[in-house]
């Protein structure tokens, strides 16, 4: 591209600036990687070694730490819980969200705008601020300390953005495809399931990442609604783990590594999807 070449040719001042900016970006890369690297090497040291030699490599790597944290400290269970809660929430976010989008974008009726607005009313507002009525509601439904409580709230949290993104996408699908299917004898469900949904797949992938990452990482709602240790998700489990072992830095770094590394590894394989998905709400 010519525009870019021109930028790079430039005068001395420009080249200096480029060098400066390039350095700034490299510094940020180091600032990202070094703390993560130090976290991993610290997880393999003893607490005493962390304090005495914070930058050195572990002299005798203590891999046993990972077994202790994963098995004895229950991180295996926390991961399982996070997985269950995120997966179940997302299945219903995608199912209800795509159905609602279909109902909003593929039919013409009077209440359509109203229905759409009702869904969107929650899109910008932080649900956290309504924790008191939610708490009372969950209590009255008898869902305290049950995974269904956070699943329902995550489902509600995920629907507005899902309906926003999917209904815009579905609106763009040509009518002819639908008519052809109807002539072939498809009912509305079959049109949704066999015509519209397959075409919507890319947008579904986007919506899934957009919602699954915040749900996986959410701390507030599991903190309020899940008290039993056997139900805790990774962020809440990490939090109580930090409360119990505040002086055992070796173990703390192991816990952090276990909480952070899986996401990092997943990202390295799917970075393009993560970037597209997570910025989906902010980019037209």
């Amino acid at each position: 591209m010519t525009t870019d070449l021109r930028y790079q040719r430039g005068r001395l001042l420009r080249n200096t600036l480029i060098l400066l900016f390039q350095t700034a970006m490299i510094i940020y890369v180091v600032l990202i990687f070094y703390p993560l690297f130090n976290m991993v090497i610290s997880s393999l040291k003893s607490t005493r070694e962390i304090f005495q030699d914070p930058f050195g490599l572990p002299k005798a790597p203590r891999l046993a730490n990972f077994r202790v944290v994963w098995v004895d400290k229950g991180f295996g269970i926390y991961f399982m819980n996070s997985f269950i809660v995120t997966a179940v929430s997302m299945v219903f976010v995608v199912l209800f969200g795509s159905m609602a989008s279909f109902g909003i974008s593929r039919y013409a009726y009077k209440a359509r705008t109203l229905v759409y607005m009702l869904f969107l009313s929650g899109i910008m507002l932080p649900l956290k601020a309504a924790i008191i009525p939610l708490f009372i509601l969950i209590k009255n439904l008898g869902l305290m300390d049950r995974q269904l409580s956070v699943i329902l709230i995550f489902l509600a949290m995920g629907l507005p953005s899902t309906v926003f993104i999917l209904s815009a996408f579905m609106k763009g699908i040509p009518r002819d495809l639908e008519y052809a299917a109807r002539i072939d004898g498809c009912n509305d469900w079959m049109v949704y399931r066999m015509v519209i949904m397959p075409i919507t797949a890319p947008a579904i992938a986007l919506v899934t990442i957009y919602n699954a990452v915040p749900i996986w990482n959410d701390f507030f709602f599991p903190l309020v609604f899940l008290q039993s240790n056997r139900l805790k998700t990774v962020p809440v489990g990490l939090s109580s783990f930090f409360g119990q072992h505040s002086t055992d830095w070796s173990l703390l770094f192991t816990g952090l590594s276990i909480a952070i590394l899986p996401m990092l590894i997943l990202y390295l394989f799917m970075s393009r999807y993560f970037i597209r998905g997570m910025t989906a709400g902010a980019i037209k």
Binding site: F96, G97, M99, A100, V115, L118, F119, S121, G122, L125, L127, A130, P133, L134, L137, L152, I153, L155, A156, M157, L159, P160, V163
Partner: peptide
């Protein structure tokens, strides 16, 4: 979807 949104967003 509307039921979930009403119960867990609009009502609260």
């Amino acid at each position: 979807g509307l039921l979930v949104v009403t119960l867990f967003i609009l009502l609260p």
